[in-house]
Write a protein that binds this DNA or RNA. Structure first.
Lengths: 214, 214
DNA sequence: TTACTTTGACACTAGTTAGTGTACTTTGGC
DNA sequence: GCCAAAGTACACTAACTAGTGTCAAAGTAA
């Protein structure tokens, strides 16, 4: 089972149509429920073509998952740079950053619906591939956030022992909290409520990690 | 669609055999993959009997989900009482409490495998029933934890504005962190790693909520 | 054009699954 | 031992699904 196809096949626009449709249908229906016929219809492509581009329903799923993770990771990297490059008001900047990060879930609804599907399938996905997914997605988020926090700490605005732990905690207190309550966007939450959660999370984070604390 | 059957039918031990088997199979395979035949075999019961006790595969699933939530909630209540009734060393007590709470996931593996299945199905579960599930399970956890924290704060050991928020944050920093990394126990994590995560979470919580902080 | 790759339409296999109908047996209270 | 409720065995349906085979059509590059 290969993670990515080495040799490309067919017309790229067809391939893209397939992956986009697959992302949508997998996210909407989950892996098992999603039918290859439905994906073909959604992509405006013959089912036969799907099986020429991808060997398996499983391979299609995993391809879509990994490619989507890359996309989102790139988007989040931009959000980090936008909000955490230069700090004016640390609390406000962290809140704005977290709100944007949370909003990414609604910006890529298909992908995050797919994330739910992956977590559901976790027990059925071969461990090495699952690890690859974690590495491409969630883990990268932490690893990229940590250096920003470290730099902020170096400027004397935070007091951090282990930046990786701090990054994980900030994420838990904001993004994870919201995602858990909304089931990754499946159940909507009013924006004001999101702001409340994120603000509370950032404040708890800052009380714990601010430089002024003992 | 009724949440619980008003009029009981059949022999209770059969019903229990069915629900236990269903919990296991649903947890192992997920809702869609799980076959009613498999559940019947696992329960040592005729498929026909299942359909005499439950109208639907869906109703069976939801029944199992709600009943399991009650069980786990009761167990967690005990853990809270055991660790948070009288506080000796706050940090150590919170760590021990959280470790036990995390361990509950492995104590009820079938149920928490089912939790994954529920989260996966979130978009396909009728909202009122999903709300009932949230109320019976995770939410109750927070609501019951909050009073303990409030009492500890009243004794001057914590500084808490909103006990519900504090309860949510403690849970996020410990249980949620571990659950996310292990996919609710689907992927094992060495105990020492669990202890590290929980300890770090409790410390961050305490730095933020301890009475000595500004 | 020619030669070649890619795609489409569509029928088809083979397997699975939810749920039902029915006739028979078991169980447990009286 | 009687009887009604409960459970079993099993055949069956209707539907759905992953994946393949085939052959013709359409795009592409020389």
């Amino acid at each position: 089972m290969t993670l990515r196809q080495a040799e490309p096949y067919g017309r790229p626009e067809k391939r893209q149509a397939i992956t986009r449709a697959a992302r949508r249908v997998f996210g909407r229906d989950g892996y098992t429920r999603a039918g290859v016929d439905a994906i073909a219809a959604e992509a405006g492509v013959s089912k036969r073509t799907i099986y020429r581009h991808f060997t398996d329903k499983e391979q299609l799923f995993l391809t879509v998952a990994l490619e989507g993770a890359d996309e989102v990771t790139a988007a989040i990297a931009q959000i980090m740079d936008r909000h955490l490059h230069k700090i004016v008001d640390l609390e406000q900047d962290l809140i704005d950053f977290s709100l944007d990060r949370v909003a990414a879930v609604t910006t890529f609804p298909d992908h995050f619906a797919l994330v739910r599907a992956i977590e559901a399938e976790a027990a059925h996905i071969p461990p090495p591939i699952l690890k690859a997914w974690i590495a491409a997605g969630p883990q990268t988020g932490h690893l990229r956030l940590a250096p920003y926090l470290r730099r902020i700490a170096e400027r004397g605005l935070l007091r951090i022992d282990d930046a990786d732990v701090a990054a994980a905690h900030l994420t838990l207190l904001t993004v994870t909290d919201v995602n858990q309550q909304t089931f990754y966007g499946a159940i909507p939450l009013p924006q004001e409520e999101v702001t409340r959660l994120v603000t509370a999370g950032v404040r708890t984070f800052l009380r714990s990690y601010s430089a002024s604390a003992a």
